[in-house]
Design a binder for these strands. Structure first.
Lengths: 138, 138
DNA sequence: TTTTTCCTGCAAGTTATTTGCAACTCGCAT
DNA sequence: ATGCGAGTTGCAAATAACTTGCAGGAAAAA
């Protein structure tokens, strides 16, 4: 546990309960909007302010502990940096977010680098479409 | 020209100058935010209202003449349906939007269908990363 | 413990987009 | 041509999602 505390201190950040809660919430949720993070945090610490959540998400992103992506619709979604091992398959119909290993995109990513010099940021990679479930229903 | 008018009428829409201007603007701009579309339209028709632009973009999208995508940052960007022949390579540093033919992604798209049953919507496909230009500068 | 600096809560401020509503005008039917 | 009715527009107010200024409060260093 002592080690866990250090992960924030080591980044030069203060160890506040709010900050820890935000980080824990992001990790527990997998991926979530700021609003969802706030809701999760409020389960144990009702008083937390939305702007504190926003500010901490930004701070945590600056030190590399979390990242955000835009998954198609409106707001950004955050997830823990450790979780960056998969692509996000966003279903435009049901809104579900599926996963696929990043290797799936490796050939494609390489093509873009070779032919266009464009370095794809896999961590921000969101793929839009229709999931198997919704395809079956229609 | 008479034919051109029909493309809107045929969809069951009224032919208003605002509507035509919005559609023309989207086609002329390639891809643009609602704000940019409004600005373009105002070049020839200064009085047009922003909400009219929003409403028309939505209407035109409903009949399939334009489409929108979320290119990473905040707002949606619209483009004409005919223009859906390329992928968008969005640079997270300079914000530029490059193009690549959809075929580039074909193998990748097929993999996702085969392995996950996920049908990628190429028209909403936005790829996030760093463009050659910005890579060079850093 | 004292000080310095960072954080937090709160409220007000932005920015982007939507909506209610009355006036208007496009296109069908005289 | 002319009029009527529904689809449209402009305007202003309303939302929604964030961001920011500021003063008090709490970590961490001294």
């Amino acid at each position: 546990m002592a080690d866990k505390n250090h992960e924030l201190r080591d980044k030069g950040l203060r160890l506040t309960p709010q900050r820890q809660l935000v980080l824990e919430a992001v990790r527990a949720l997998g991926h979530a909007t700021p609003e969802e993070v706030a809701e999760k945090v409020r389960a144990t610490h009702p008083g937390i302010n939305l702007s504190t959540v926003y500010r901490n998400l930004e701070t945590l992103e600056n030190v590399g502990l979390v990242q955000h992506t835009h998954l198609g619709h409106g707001g950004a979604t955050y997830h823990a940096a450790e979780e960056l091992t998969h692509l996000h398959l966003v279903c435009g119909k049901c809104g579900s977010v599926g996963d696929a290993p990043i290797e799936t995109a490796a050939p494609f990513v390489n093509t873009l680098i070779d032919e266009y010099g464009f370095k794809t940021d896999v961590t921000h990679f969101a793929i839009y479409g229709t999931c198997a479930n919704c395809t079956a229903k229609s």
